[in-house]
């Protein structure tokens, strides 16, 4: 695929030929059958599935429920654990796509666990950055608890920054009253960037059984229905905190990507859109230049300067 220089972006630890990457949890470790449908080298980067210290079996099924313009999921950070990821998953991905920047998503039940996982992944030499997951709504210990209290979020960010050899992006939860306060706290903790937003806590009930559809009862809502919330939060945070933002939350089209940029984003991650359109990422990469022509946008980096510089 032709590299369009107008799409190139530089962020801490990440030299991206375009700003489009699959979001964590929607693309495994690049080891699923989506990879048969396009060359992963086309991607700007990939954010791999969350890693925890020990293997996690995840939540009981059903783990997924559809809602109009959205999807609820409660997978519960199922993953084989950081050891297997370092031994089996990352080397395969890195060897197959040596030019593809990898962002590793880090999760844990305790601060010590986050620190240990972050340390090991960042020392692997295979990841360009970490995404600190303080916002998973589907686990009962850790997860979102770290992302809803500014003091705890700052302390965790600081502790991870002390051990990490690569830049750290903190993934924020929208399930808070004031996301700016959390963003400021992780910035004070030394975060190199933010990624936002994670899913919104939701629930659906089965009318026949009269009980929640999801095995975990609650789940995280994603998809185009949450996009306006993401746009609003990115807009607020980008005006208060001087950190680059990887935007996510219902992005499906090139218009959505540019809307996120105009809110204050520097790159975008695609999640739910894959399920209807497995080639959502390469499609966006192809559509972006044309949309930029229409809107008279010379380059994405100029757009960032224009939006963030004006703040």
């Amino acid at each position: 695929m032709r590299t369009d220089e107008r799409l190139a972006i530089e962020l801490p630890g990440l030299k991206l030929k375009n700003p489009v990457m699959p979001a964590s949890g929607c693309f495994g470790f690049g080891d699923n059958r989506y990879a048969e449908m396009f060359d992963l080298n086309e991607l700007g980067a990939i954010i791999i599935k969350a890693a925890t210290l020990k293997p996690r079996i995840g939540n009981p099924v059903p783990r997924i429920a559809e809602t109009k313009s959205g999807v609820l999921n409660a997978v519960g950070l199922q993953n084989p654990g950081v050891d297997v990821i370092l031994k089996e998953k990352l080397p395969v991905l890195h060897k197959k796509y040596p030019e593809l920047p990898i962002i590793a998503n880090v999760a844990g039940a305790t601060q010590a666990e986050y620190v240990e996982v972050a340390k090991r992944l960042s020392e692997s030499g295979m990841v360009s950055a970490l995404e600190l997951n303080i916002s998973c709504p589907n686990v009962h210990e850790g997860g979102m608890l770290f992302g809803t209290d500014p003091v705890i979020a700052q302390r965790l960010t600081q502790a991870v920054k002390e051990v990490s050899r690569v830049p750290v992006y903190v993934k924020l939860s929208p399930n808070v009253t004031d996301i700016v306060a959390i963003a400021q706290a992780v910035a004070a903790g030394g975060a190199d960037g933010l990624s936002m937003i994670n899913t919104l806590l939701g629930m659906r009930i089965n009318l026949k059984t009269r009980s929640p559809i999801l095995g975990n009862k609650t789940g995280g809502l994603s998809g185009p229905g949450i996009k306006p919330i993401a746009v609003r939060m990115i807009y607020q945070v980008s005006r208060a905190v001087d950190l680059p933002i990887i935007a996510m939350g219902g992005i499906e089209t090139a218009d959505d990507v540019l809307e996120m940029y105009m809110a204050g984003a520097s790159a975008v991650a695609i999640g739910t859109a894959h399920f209807n359109n497995p080639t959502a990422c390469p499609d966006l990469i192809r559509e972006l230049p044309q949309k930029m022509d229409e809107l008279k946008i010379d380059s994405l980096s100029e757009l960032i300067t224009e939006v963030r510089g004006a703040q």
């Binding site: 949890g25 929607c26 693309f27 495994g28 080891d31 699923n32 059958r33 989506y34 599935k49 995840g58 099924v61 059903p62 783990r63 997924i64 429920a65 999807v71 999921n73 997978v75 199922q78 894959h274 399920f275 497995p278």
Partner: peptide, 15 residues
């Protein structure tokens, strides 16, 4: 299985 992706990416339909 209730699944989202069908390709082993979302890990919703486990057994």
């Amino acid at each position: 299985g209730r699944m989202a992706c069908g390709v082993g990416a979302c890990e919703a339909c486990v057994v």
